[in-house]
Design a protein around this nucleic acid. Sequence first.
RNA 1: AGGCGCGUAGCUCAGGGGUAGAGCACUACCUUGACACGGUAGGGGUCUGGGGUUCAAAUCCCCACGCGCCUACCA
Length: 895
Amino acid sequence: MEIPKQYDPKQAEQHHYERWEKQGCFAPEINRDENAPPFCIVIPPPNVTGSLHMGHALQHTMMDVITRYKRMCGYRTLWLPGMDHAGISTQLMVTRELKKEGVSRYDLGREKFIERVWKWKKESGGQITKQMRREGVSVDWSREKFTMDEDLSNAVREVFVRLYEEGKIYRGNRIVNWCPNDQTVLSDLEVEKIPQAGKLYYLRYPAKNGGGSVTVATTRPETMLGDTAVAVNPADERYRELLGQTLLLPLTDREIRVVADEFVDPEFGTGAVKVTPAHDPNDYDMGVRHNLEQVVVIDSHAKMTEAAGAEFVGLDRYKARTKVVEKFEELGLLEKVVDYEFSISKCERCKTVIEPLISTQWFLRMDELRDDALKLLAERKLPQFVPEVPYEKVYSNWLENLRDWTISRQLWWGHQIPAWYTPDGEVFVARTEEEAKAKAGTDDLTQDSDVLDTWFSSQLWPFSTMGWPEKTKDLDTFYPTSVLMTGRDIIFLWVSRMVMMGLKFVGSEPFADVFVTGTILDAQGQRMSKTKMNGIDPLEVFEKYGVDATRLKLASVGSTDIRWSDKQVESYRNFANKIWNAARFCMMNSGSAAVDPKSLTSSPELALHDRWILSRLNKTARDVREALASYGFHEAVQTLYHFFWDDFCDWYIELTKTDVSAEADSPQRSAARTRLLSVLEQALRLLHPFMPYLTEELWLRLPGIGSQLLHPAYQSAEPTIMLAWYPEASAALIDETVEWEMQAVIDLISRVRNIRSEMNIKPGEPISLLVGAPDEKLRTVFSANENQIRRLARASEISVSERLEAPKASARAVLVGGAEVAIPLAGLIDFGQERQRLNKEKEKLAAEATKLEAQLANPQFAERAPAEKVNEVRERIADIAQRSAQLDQTIANLE
RNA sequence: AGGCGCGUAGCUCAGGGGUAGAGCACUACCUUGACACGGUAGGGGUCUGGGGUUCAAAUCCCCACGCGCCUACCA
């Protein structure tokens, strides 16, 4: 038999994926059952510029586990892959490439630039799709989509036009987040607030009449050049007289009013606020309320405009700040400067400080869409978040406070806005240029040069990828999808928007469940990030420990944040090797036996350990299915790990060795071999969604595998474990009595081993066992399993009787049900040591008894606790009393 | 400023009103015919602290401390 002693993950990872893909195992069409229920996941499309990181590996593992599981359960399964065109990232990447050639995108022009991006995409984009194949993800590559594909772009235009026609999309002149570096507007979600140490400047503005003045506090003195008012709280007594008065704005010849506004907090600063409607979102709102002029003093490159005055025009905003402060000081109008920590808005991508600017952009009105999403959650509890706490609240709170969304971007790479202008500025929104021309009645049109926010197309992903707005078969079959699995960072950016769009355009929710994964942190508990360089490359982990071991680790992460540790992957690598060697044993001892699921039915003639492993196997299938039904990945992994290692390897293989490796051929021997192989085969199926490569590698080697093991929906497919029927628990095979009996045997063996170890009896030293069991049933169990006990406890002989009669020079232990075991140790026993060992045991019992007795002594306990609990405590006390008595006896006998 | 989560063995983490768990690490023994990436047996925890509810709290509630995360228009 030529099976290596160590599992080689790389070898197994080499060929199966290609075979699966070629044979169409990933496509839903492999399922020939017309009535098969659908199961569908759409992948959160990674950026075309991206490469695989731990977050992907984590999410992909969980999606793959569920997908493979559902497929094995006979669902018509689709996991749809694809990529996002990632507007800004991609444009920056290509721009950088061009820069190396000494060319700017403007030199190239829009059309050539976009051609260049496509060329880049074709040649070096989408690295991630190759890396994903290594992960073993069972996505249907034949349906792979890209947000800039022709059909997805159609969907984008369709949605845009319909929303425009309904008045939800509008063009407006508003204050927006502007990135002076990327030269584009950004949505609120693409801006991050970073706390920063700064200064608060107190500036004095003289009043026009009389010698008075007002002091305002600001973090941005340079914006004072654009001030058009000072605001105070109407309830603020201090400024009552000032209301309606006129101030002389220093450094300018402008006169500004003092207005009253509730927004102003009298407690902060001086209680008077300078108002710069053109350069601050709050001031903008105040400006609207008080009909204030908007004086633009900073331009799109964050330089001062002409309106800032001759002295300042052309200055960078920070240079202007210094200069403004200097001037105020010269004029004696700078009251003070204090240290002040505040949050500053930065561009999420390039970290440039955002400049709030007034600009004409396209917006999407969110109120109705938002209300529908909230209604869906309130009335039908969709989507169902897992874990529900805290994500359901996070999601609904955000929706409740939602503002209109700035959807235009001043980029070239993306979906160009389907709006055309006549020379005199009239706008026509249409699906195509032809349609626009027809509407406008002229050919002289110019298309809006902006593109849409990348998320505008991603929000359509669950249905645009399935052919919407056409009524396709996929859409009919797979929408709404089953579950969305993602990290918590895009609940707002993506999840909520998909819900709103799904409701709006398909009329139903895009997915039933949203499973939110945890975050993998580095060993110090910090988030992995490119800038910190603390990321762990999943491909390196695959290389070192194998894909399956890594997947098992990732699957067990679930939804909590976790610090990365190679150690855990290593232990799953060991587990993989354990599985390999268990299978190796089964196959080396299989002879002419073959896998046969029919051998997995119980009958009273079967030995205890056989009935036991069937019970354990079925319980495992039940528990794993239950765990996966509620996305309990961690629990599923633990259940499988312990079933395979503890139950199957440590006990069952050991217990069945005599049967399986008997010298002489017999019906019993071949039945035992068939059973062993079949239990293994079932275990491999249970493990397959988590460890696809290892299980396939082994499964294909098992004797007797074939199409007959596949789920009926896949009967015509080539044999592969990924299409085998996922084991289903049979309640009839779960037998608590059998498990209890087996546990008694296991306990006996463990107690004997414990004595051996504590008494320093060499493993080779022959011992004999005397077992006393007043309970007849227990005696039967022990007697029936004499051979097993002898072998596993390494005893040369064993005798079971009603009452224990053993020589004084024996080591003893008390077992369940009043049973006892004694090991005669004439000449070997150290009485002192044995007494010590027994006393230690007695102390343990005594401590437990004290606790229980105190509980029982409490009259309230007997009165109020359920009778069942009270009885349980009584029984335990009785059991402990019996054991203690036996121990006392044993200790006394030692003398 | 609000909201949320976390604090359990040396480490990384499960669990969660009724006997405190796993893996790794540690100790001792074992090259036993599947596997030393292994086997057997052990040691190790006032479940952050303090109150409360309850017959019973690691678990539920409140407070404190520590650590994270998210949201926010306080100049």
